[in-house]
């Protein structure tokens, strides 16, 4: 044992350094978020509760192709269609078992029409399982609730095309540009 090490040992230097750190931290601001009072804004593109999109005329965009249901890893989307007048496909029931959903967003990727979308809403609670068995009407109501207004529109637009939208040029791509306050 060297002399320096010996001195470190009997004077508890490393413990004192640790204690100095904790004491110093005591006077730094806390990082706690007081959740129900202060809500963290979710980032754009958050994968929350489902919603069925409406077009400009206020009609459901979904045509009932069933791709979302086929792609869904937890198989929680059920679509029932019938043949309507002039041989159109009519979506009778569009149901999402929200409690089984894993929020991977694959349904959004599968949909060719951008008919299903995930909203920013993440705090939902209820007293029974039935409340989370989302029917077509509930999903359409979600759309009115979370995708109206400018924010909702922009959010939908950002989220609608998660794949690289444009294969032709990469001018706007995020690149490292150096940082001003480099230490």
């Amino acid at each position: 044992m060297t002399a320096g090490k010996f001195i470190r040992t009997i004077f508890f230097i490393e413990i004192l350094q640790g204690m100095a750190l904790t004491l110093r931290t005591m006077f730094t601001p806390a990082v706690t978020r007081r959740y129900p009072k202060v809500k963290r804004p979710v980032q754009p593109g958050f994968r929350g509760l489902h919603a069925l999109a409406k077009n400009e005329e206020g009609k459901m965009k979904c045509v009932g192709c069933g791709l979302c249901g086929a792609y869904c890893p937890s198989q929680c989307i059920h679509i029932y269609t019938t043949e309507g007048e002039d041989h159109n496909k009519v979506v009778d029931r569009y149901e999402v078992e929200v409690l089984r959903c894993v929020y991977c967003g694959f349904c959004v990727e599968a949909c060719p029409f951008g008919a299903i979308s995930l909203s920013e809403h993440y705090e939902y609670s209820g007293y029974s399982r039935e409340e989370f068995y989302m029917t077509k009407d509930m999903l359409l109501a979600n759309w009115d609730k979370y995708f109206t207004g400018k924010k909702g529109e922009r959010y939908y637009k950002d989220f609608w095309g998660p794949k690289s939208e444009d294969f032709h040029g990469y001018e706007g791509q995020a690149m490292f540009k150096g940082i001003k306050n480099e230490k």
Binding site: V42, Q43, P44, G45, F46, R47, V102, Y103, C104, G105, F106, L118, F159
Partner: peptide, 15 residues
């Protein structure tokens, strides 16, 4: 976690 959320919309199960 915040960065992950910014990246893909989920914090824990990112996919």
């Amino acid at each position: 976690m915040d960065l992950f959320e910014m990246l893909c919309g989920a914090r824990l199960t990112v996919s």
